[in-house]
Design a protein around this nucleic acid. Structure first.
Lengths: 227, 227
DNA sequence: AAGTGTCTTCATAATATCTTTATAATCTTC
DNA sequence: GAAGATTATAAAGATATTATGAAGACACTT
């Protein structure tokens, strides 16, 4: 059963990034820009989890939670810009299940989503195993196997490979890739990706000089071989 | 995974005896002195089984069951001082899974606990004895053997090792691990795991500086060696 | 109430990773 | 095949994460 997640934030860019990321991970995603919209969406969509920004115009996160909790018990993960402990306390008292401070890396949010869903008795979501060519990537156990041997990847390398393998044949620009491995709303430098790719290749390619799995598309980006 | 049991009774001495006994048997134990406390604990700790005294001040066992069963379905074993058949009937009608009359022998309680947990459809066909590399962990007797010698682990260390050994090669995040060793999900601080791991390593690793059993996966968590 | 053992928190040292920088190699276009 | 642009690579510097020791909090015993 695919889990549905409602993302509520007034920053459009953040919402669409998170949406894209979660959808790629196999979740269904609904979105709302403010508390009022969110209440309607929560009722209509019946999400399994809500990701909620505290600071929003009109109706803030706390207010939303108060109203929402009156008739539903959906797990909630709070997003907060502040590192303020008070926020955490107030949020958790109001019944939030966890909270994540901005800026955050997608992988961190994902980890917390999984933990909350698992805690609330829900079964694990979609198949977490990607398999193409003779590379196997298991998101859940965080293992990567090339042929018969396991390789150890750094977090960035792992995420990069996961994104590329999620759509073999599709070309991802460096900016696309940067969004996945860096915090949402980080100003990153595209060339960083080149280095990660180089390191990744050195770990998974038989001959990094003429890559078989991760191909370079000149002037555009990288893609995982369609085979 | 280690089962958690909530013991509810107003007699302190009885509670601590049962707690000690069950912990020795490898269960995790939470306690409460009256119905109100118990309701809170039941929600926070999400026990796999509740052992409940019927006669308590404030809120008695029946009342607790009524309230608790409104939103959860934890198996319940009733403790009763009377040998009154009525109690049995009322209790079972309210949905108790078994009952034990005081005074009782620990072994008897234990037998019923096992029976109820087994009956309540709880999965747990998992082996009670985990054996990997040259570490043996016995959930039932709560013993851990490294090579030929037994080591004494604290409850947290035992749980941690049990979880890691349940899936060698699988990486567990600190959040995952925290959920296993702590009752309340969000009370904790992830770094606590680091310390438990350090202590665990000092007890089981020949050379804690370069761990052979428990490996660190930078940026992700820990795993038991795939070998 | 003191004592033991465990768990948690905190501060700091040790590591691993990530990013940047500079230069070499490669590709595209003309 | 040459010029200009893009990518690969190595190495240094900056960041982030983990390991560790020690102090304090907590729970249970005596």
């Amino acid at each position: 059963m695919v889990k549905k997640i409602l993302v509520v934030d007034d920053e459009e860019r953040l919402v669409s990034l998170v949406k894209a990321y979660l959808e790629q991970e196999g979740y269904r995603v609904a979105t709302a820009q403010d508390g009022k919209e969110a209440l309607i969406a929560a009722r209509a969509e019946k999400p399994d989890l809500i990701i909620l920004d505290i600071m929003m115009p009109e109706m803030d996160g706390y207010e939303f939670m108060r109203l929402h909790r009156r008739d539903q018990n959906t797990p909630i993960i709070l997003l907060t810009a502040k590192v303020d402990e008070d926020d955490k306390v107030v949020g958790l008292e109001l019944g939030a299940d966890d909270y994540v401070t901005k800026p955050f890396r997608p992988r961190e949010l994902l980890a917390r989503i999984r933990a909350v869903l698992r805690r609330s008795g829900e079964t694990e979501p979609t198949a977490e195993i990607l398999h193409h060519a003779d590379i196997t990537l298991d998101r859940e156990s965080h293992n990567v196997k090339v042929g018969e041997s396991f390789v150890n990847l750094t977090p960035s390398e792992f995420d990069l490979l996961a994104v590329l393998m999620s759509s073999p044949g599709r070309v991802f620009s460096r900016l696309d890739l940067l969004d996945h491995i860096q915090g949402v709303a980080y100003g990153g430098y595209e060339r960083t990706i080149d280095v990660h790719i180089k390191n990744l290749r050195s770990k998974i390619e038989p001959d990094p000089r003429s890559p078989r799995y991760i191909e370079t598309i000149y002037g555009v980006g990288y893609r995982f071989s369609r085979e």
